Simulated scan of single mutants.
Amino acid sequence: MGTDHPDTDHPDIDHPEIDRTLLATYVEDHVAGATAVISRLERLSRVEEIGDMREPLGRLAAELREERATHMATARDLELSLSRLKRVGAVLGEHVARLKPNGRVGGRSPMSLVLELEIIRSGLEGKRMGWVTLREHADALELDVARLEHFITRSRDQADRVEHLAARARERAFAPHLGTTSADD
């Protein structure tokens, strides 16, 4: 067939070598992202105003802490070095993001929870894609495919749970009878 690499037609050839520096950066970025989302979830789970949403958000934070630990253990197993600096920067960035105006002189806006849940939902999608990427390279990295599939499925479930909470938050935020006001008032 006129290919430069006659072995490319064989499915059992070795995978190309993975760039360990790029892999370390990739895993490090996912760990930092998880750290920021966990920080936001932990804070939200202590906000009295969100009532019965506090418990599921606290549970989700615990799940993400477990997954972050798995990422870090995977990095150790692959002999990748992860910088603590990115995780600290992620938490600081998450804290700075809280300083944005919310349209209220005092207290939380009903929209704050909606926006925060949207941010969390985006983070969960990014996390899922991180597990997908590792699964795509599982053979080359000698990673457990079943474990990665578990985390991919779990990420979808987590995103669905957050979307359910976000739908409730949107309903509350835009309901005039619950005390929201428009920016025109």
Rank of each mutant, 00 (worst) to 15 (best):
T25E: 14
T25Y: 10
V27E: 01
E28A: 08
E28L: 01
D29R: 10
H30V: 07
H30D: 10
A34C: 06
I38S: 05
S39A: 15
R40D: 10
L41S: 02
R43I: 00
L44F: 07
L44K: 05
L44P: 04
L44D: 07
S45K: 13
I50C: 03
G51H: 04
G51I: 03
D52M: 06
D52F: 03
M53D: 13
E55G: 05
P56A: 02
G58R: 14
G58C: 02
L60H: 10
L60V: 09
A62F: 04
A62K: 06
L64Y: 02
L64W: 12
L64P: 06
R65L: 12
E67I: 00
R68H: 06
A69S: 14
T70I: 13
H71C: 10
H71P: 00
H71F: 10
M72C: 08
M72R: 12
A73V: 12
R76E: 15
R76C: 05
L78N: 04
L78S: 07
E79C: 11
E79D: 14
L80H: 01
L80N: 00
S81A: 15
R87V: 11
V88W: 08
V88C: 03
G89D: 12
V91N: 03
L92G: 01
G93P: 13
V96L: 13
V96Q: 09
V96P: 02
G107W: 07
G107A: 09
R108G: 03
S109P: 13
P110V: 00
P110L: 08
L113Y: 03
L113M: 10
V114L: 01
L117N: 01
I119Q: 08
R121S: 11
S122N: 12
L124D: 04
L124A: 07
L124W: 08
E125H: 14
K127P: 00
R128E: 07
R128G: 07
M129F: 09
G130I: 01
V132N: 06
V132A: 05
E136P: 12
H137L: 13
H137M: 09
A138H: 07
E142I: 13
D144T: 11
L148E: 03
E149W: 03
H150Q: 12
F151Q: 05
F151H: 09
R154N: 07
